[in-house]
Amino acid sequence: MATQAFEEIVEDFEFLEDWEDRYRHVIELGKAMAPLDDALKVPATKVDGCASQVWLHITPKDGKFHFDGDSDALIVRGLIAVLRALYNDVPMQDVARIDAQAELGRLGLQDHLSAQRSNGVKAMIQRIRETAAA
């Protein structure tokens, strides 16, 4: 049920055999994202449960889920980019059907992130799911 954008990341990861290259690729995905406007970095958009500062600004468009985000940590910014590829442009009613852990498992991320980073990803996914359900 993954989006084409996420499938492209999966294909990139299959091509990159070394985890360090994959890690760098995630960071590059984050660097390629437009920064979140400082005016949107407010308590309402801040995600609790992350080791670093994380903001998700969720704005559904035409019945489809959409969000932008930012972080003060490069790898987390990259993880936000991965989650954007997974969730952006998905119909709102389908967001809850995405098994994010399984999809991210296809990238092998769970084996290479610290416990704090993994908890942060879970917190971001929870925010996404709760907002889509509201």
Rank of each mutant, 00 (worst) to 15 (best):
W19Q: 03
M92N: 08
A39L: 13
R106G: 15
E103T: 14
A44W: 01
P91Y: 05
T45K: 05
H25M: 07
E28W: 02
L109V: 05
Q53T: 14
V47R: 00
L109Y: 03
D21F: 03
E103Y: 09
R84Q: 15
P91R: 05
V42E: 06
D48K: 13
A123H: 04
L74F: 12
A73M: 10
A39M: 12
M33H: 14
Q116Y: 14
D68H: 15
S118K: 13
L40R: 12
T3D: 03
F15E: 10
G49R: 01
I125H: 01
S52F: 09
D12C: 09
I80D: 04
M1L: 11
E7G: 10
M33K: 15
P43T: 07
A34W: 09
A2H: 07
H112P: 09
A132C: 08
L107H: 02
E130T: 08
F13Q: 01
I27F: 01
L107R: 01
R22L: 08
D48H: 11
D12I: 07
A96P: 04
G120Y: 04
Q4M: 09
K31P: 00
E8P: 07
A34V: 07
K41I: 07
L104H: 03
A133Q: 11
I58W: 02
T59Y: 10
I27K: 00
L83W: 02
G120F: 02
R106M: 09
H66W: 12
L86Q: 09
E14C: 09
I80S: 02
K61S: 11
D68K: 15
A133I: 06
Q93L: 10
L40K: 15
Q93C: 06
A34N: 09
V42P: 04
Q53A: 10
E11L: 14
N88C: 05
A132L: 06
A34C: 05
R22V: 07
A73H: 06
A134F: 12
F65E: 08
R77W: 00
A132S: 06
V47H: 01
E7C: 08
R84D: 02
F13H: 02
V54C: 06
I98D: 05
V26N: 04
D70G: 11
P43L: 08
L104Q: 05
D72F: 06
E7D: 15
M1A: 14
T59P: 12
F15V: 12
L109A: 05
Q110S: 15
A39C: 10
L74V: 09
S118D: 14
A34T: 11
G63E: 00
I128T: 10
A32D: 00
A96R: 03
G78L: 00
R24L: 08
A51M: 13
K31C: 00
A134D: 11
K31S: 02
V54T: 04
A132M: 07
I125Q: 04
I125N: 02
P91Q: 07
D89P: 12
R129F: 07
M33Q: 15
S118Y: 14
L56A: 11
W19V: 03
K41V: 09
L36G: 14
F6I: 03
E7K: 08
L83Y: 00
G78H: 00
A34R: 14
I125S: 05
Q4T: 12
D68C: 14
T3N: 04
